[in-house]
Amino acid sequence: MLVKMMITSVIMILVFSTSAKAQDVDYRAQSLYLYKFARYIYWPENKLAGEFKIGVYGNSEILEELKLMASLKKGPDGMDITIVEISEEDDLSQFNIIYIPSSKSRQIREIAEKIGDAPVLIVAEREGLASKGATISFLVTDSMVLKFEINMVKMEEQSLEISEELLKLGYEI
C-alpha cells in the first residue's frame, strides 16, 4: 500500500506542478482600492460632471473586476462609474483615474507627461512608480498586504486632495 500511495503522490506532483497557478494577484483587492480612491480623494468641481471615468491603460484582468464594481457602486456625488480600456489615441485628460498595469510600466513617464498637471489620478500597479510619474502606486508588504505609496507633491500639482483616513493606509514618499 505504501508503495502505491507513494507512486500516486509522485504522479500527482507531476500533474499538478505544471497546471496550477501560483499566487495570483487579487485584482478585486486593487479594484476595491480604486473605488476607495474615487470616494476619498477629492477632484476639482469641473472634473465631477457627467460620469466618473476610470481608464485602464491597455488590457488587464482588472478590467473585469472594475466593470463588476461599476455595476454595483456609484462614484462621488452619486455619479455613474464608467470603465474604459484606453487606446493610444484617447485623450487622457478626460479620465478621473488612469490605471497603469505592470505590463505598461515603462510608459509611465510618457503618460505622466501627456497628463501634465491635469486632475487625473494616475495609479500604477507596479511598486515604486509613484516616484517616476504616477500619483499612486501599489505595493505589497512582506506579509502580503496590499498598500500604496502616494506622491503628495504630484497630488497638489494635480489639484487633488486625499482624506486623512485614506492617507493613513498608504505611505507618503
Binding site: 499566487q23 495570483d24 494577484v25 487579487d26 483587492a29 476595491l32 482600492y33 476607495k36 501599489f138 505589497v140 508588504t141 502580503m144 498586504v145 496590499l146 493606509l169
Partner: peptide, 8 residues
C-alpha cells in the same frame, strides 16, 4: 483595508 491581502 488595513489587512487587505494582495493575493487571492
Amino acid at each position: 483595508l488595513e489587512d487587505l491581502k494582495a493575493t487571492g
